[in-house]
């Protein structure tokens, strides 16, 4: 399991290749990449991500462990950035490795649903120079609830 919380950019391809190369006995690697999306009008200047340093790594590790207990996984990788990002920047990635794809897909989706609403990150959007905290969505809560 590798969990990284960092402000620096990272290369999704390099990380995916390194993660895949570590596991010779898996049949499936699933990756998800989260990217800063511009709003419809193209007016998003930046997105600032705040986190709770003392809690973030620990909380993500606990949930990665839950995923490993629940599905038959060989490994889990989570990289999540914080700080100021602009549209098109990679925010985060999740990768799961398993013998079979169903485990890899489901665990990746579970981890994403968790990261959306339980990992201690908060997004602030800057639109036309004005800051606004992104509000949590009920949709994301519902997505998480289906794993109960």
């Amino acid at each position: 399991m590798k969990i990284q919380v960092q402000s620096a950019p990272f290369n999704v391809g390099d990380e995916t290749n390194a993660f895949t190369d570590t596991h010779k006995n898996v049949g499936a690697v699933v990756t998800f990449t989260g990217i800063v999306r511009d709003d419809d009008c193209g007016s998003l200047d930046a997105m600032e991500i705040e986190h709770y340093p003392a809690m973030t790594h620990k909380a993500i590790s606990q949930h990665a462990q839950t995923a490993q207990d629940r599905w038959n996984l060989a490994d889990v990788l989570v990289i999540h950035r914080y700080g100021k990002l602009v549209p098109g920047d990679v925010i985060m990635m999740v990768a799961t490795a398993a013998r079979h794809r169903a485990d890899a897909f489901q665990a990746a989706e579970f981890l994403m649903d968790y990261l959306k609403s339980r990992a201690p990150f908060w997004k602030k959007e800057w639109i036309d120079g004005t800051p606004r905290w992104v509000e949590a969505k009920q949709l994301d809560e519902d997505a998480l609830a289906r794993w109960d």
């Binding site: 709770y52 003392a54 201690p120």
Partner: peptide
């Protein structure tokens, strides 16, 4: 969160070292 673990508002503060307040998270 008490000592970096999410809790509810009725949680006791016994032995708590750090109590954090924040809005619902928006990660991912």
């Amino acid at each position: 969160a008490i000592d970096q673990e999410l809790v509810d508002f009725d949680a006791p503060l016994t032995n708590a070292k750090e109590v954090a307040f924040f809005p619902p998270m928006t990660g991912g």
